[in-house]
């Protein structure tokens, strides 16, 4: 049976660390390297921050995070029911931000695209946004010998 996890959290910035750490804990059994685990945490943090800062900028809302583990691959979907993105292609451009005055880097989607194996964003104005990502762990399924360096399972 495929392992999976679903969580729903209010769009509060204090939930960012909880969300990324929970996803990281879920994927530890796929035997990621520390570098790969860091990539996943960063990508999840970017997706969740987008929900808080952009999707629900005008008020409260719920962020849904769904994960599943399949062979050597982690599947993640972060979705909201917020205001949506007017121009997805533009939003994906590096350094593009709609919040120039708030010290936003405009690098969130670029980081998700770069750090994850696959990345897709779907959005409807007024209907919400969903970001679907996968991360394939190069060393997954290999031996977890105590001598193998840099593996999370061994580091703990």
């Amino acid at each position: 049976m495929k392992n999976c996890m679903k969580m729903e959290i209010p769009a509060l910035s204090e939930n960012g660390p909880f969300a990324r750490d929970t996803v990281a804990a879920f994927c530890v059994r796929l035997n990621p390297s520390l570098d790969e685990l860091s990539d996943v945490k960063t990508a999840v943090s970017e997706a969740v921050t987008n929900c808080i800062v952009h999707a629900y900028a005008d008020g409260e809302g719920i962020i849904r995070i769904e994960c599943s583990a399949e062979d050597d691959t982690l599947h993640i979907c972060v979705s909201d029911s917020g205001r949506g993105i007017a121009d997805v292609a533009r939003a994906l451009e590096p350094f593009f931000t709609t919040l120039e005055d708030e010290e936003r880097s405009g690098m969130g989607f670029t980081i998700m695209q770069t750090f994850m194996t696959t990345f897709r964003v779907e959005s409807t104005l007024g209907g919400g946004t969903s970001v679907t990502m996968t991360k394939r762990f190069a060393g997954s399924g290999r031996s977890t010998h105590a001598s193998e360096c840099g593996k999370v399972a061994d580091a703990q």
């Binding site: 960063t42 943090s45 921050t49 010290e103 936003r104 880097s105 405009g106 690098m107 969130g108 980081i111």
Partner: peptide, 12 residues
């Protein structure tokens, strides 16, 4: 830990 918010902070 740092994400793109950190980049915004540093540029600021």
């Amino acid at each position: 830990f740092m994400d793109s918010t950190g980049i915004g902070f540093l540029v600021g």
